[in-house]
């Protein structure tokens, strides 16, 4: 009878319990401990966006591709190399590469030249990234359509339980955008201090973190550069820092990552700093 346990309790049986590594006390956390000297090596970063131009000098190579297409009944997954339809994916890739130069970039192209099916493609691209074993996902996009609330919520929870942080841009307009409003994701909006490693924590969510996103010099289409403003460009700053943290501390859960980011935010009055 001792074998009988309530559902979902097997992981907590005495002989099944896993011993975990401690993390330092919150007051002892430093940027040096969290990501100092890390290059993001070995961490797979999915950029779910408009594609990436591997030959843009800011991008420095792309390690994997998938382009989602087709209809809801017959989705297609094309893993041959592709380019960036607009420049938006290059911008995100360039920022992440500048912070985590040795991370592995995967371009998940869900934004193309049309409107048809883009919500479905977005969800399918996110599912692909989760199933393909990405370590971090950068989502500088979202959907404001209620139709996608459920499916994106399910995917955000799935990613959370698999310890894959989804770093998601908040809407640039005052309306909720999914999945940025879900508690399971790392949501990001923009600040105007031109320091790529400076980020803030917002004690009054849904948007939890702020990073540089106003007048940011970013990679764009055809090898060009522009200075752009949007939460889209704040998001990859956090994704890049997360990639560096994960190189040094693989296996962190999403809630541990958020705790570390919260502890190291520039607006936290730290003891002795």
């Amino acid at each position: 009878m001792s074998q009988l346990r309530p559902a979902w309790s097997a992981a907590f049986a005495t002989d099944a319990l896993q011993t975990l590594h401690p993390i330092p006390g919150l007051d002892d956390l430093t940027p040096e401990w969290a990501w100092g000297s890390s290059t993001g090596a070995g961490v797979k970063v999915a950029i779910i966006d408009s594609g990436i131009d591997a030959d843009h000098p800011a991008v420095g190579g792309v390690q994997g591709y998938v382009q989602i297409g087709g209809t809801p009944e017959a989705l297609t997954y094309d893993e041959s190399p592709h380019g960036d339809a607009y420049g938006h994916g290059n911008a995100c890739a360039g920022i992440i590469r500048s912070l985590a130069p040795e991370c592995e970039l995967y371009s998940v192209k869900v934004l193309g030249a049309g409107l048809t099916g883009k919500g479905i493609h977005f969800a399918a691209g996110l599912r692909w990234a989760i199933e393909a074993g990405m370590d971090v996902c950068n989502l500088s996009l979202g959907s404001t359509k209620q139709d996608f609330f459920g499916i994106l919520h399910e995917l955000a929870d799935l990613a959370y339980f698999r310890h894959i942080p989804l770093v998601v841009a908040a809407n640039n307009l005052p309306a909720p955008s999914f999945p940025s409003t879900y508690a399971a994701v790392v949501s990001v909006a923009a600040h105007d201090v031109p320091d790529p490693e400076r980020f803030y924590y917002n004690p009054d969510p849904p948007v939890e973190f702020g990073a540089h996103g106003i007048d940011v010099r970013v990679a764009w289409q055809g090898g060009s550069w522009i200075t752009a403003t949007g939460n889209s460009f704040a998001t990859p700053h956090i994704a890049g820092i997360v990639a560096r943290i994960l190189t040094k501390h693989p296996g962190l859960t999403v809630f541990q990552l958020k705790t570390i980011l919260r502890a190291l935010a520039a607006n936290v009055a730290r003891v002795g700093v």
């Binding site: 607009y86 934004l111 883009k118 996009l141 640039n172 200075t227 752009a228 949007g230």
Partner: peptide, 26 residues
């Protein structure tokens, strides 16, 4: 639709501001 800033805004549904548009001939 797959063309320039306006195309991106149409497809992403997100606003965007660019401040040095004329500096780069590309």
């Amino acid at each position: 639709l797959g063309h320039g800033i306006a195309g991106l805004v149409a497809v992403s549904g997100q606003p965007m501001a660019v401040s040095d548009a004329s500096n780069d001939p590309r």
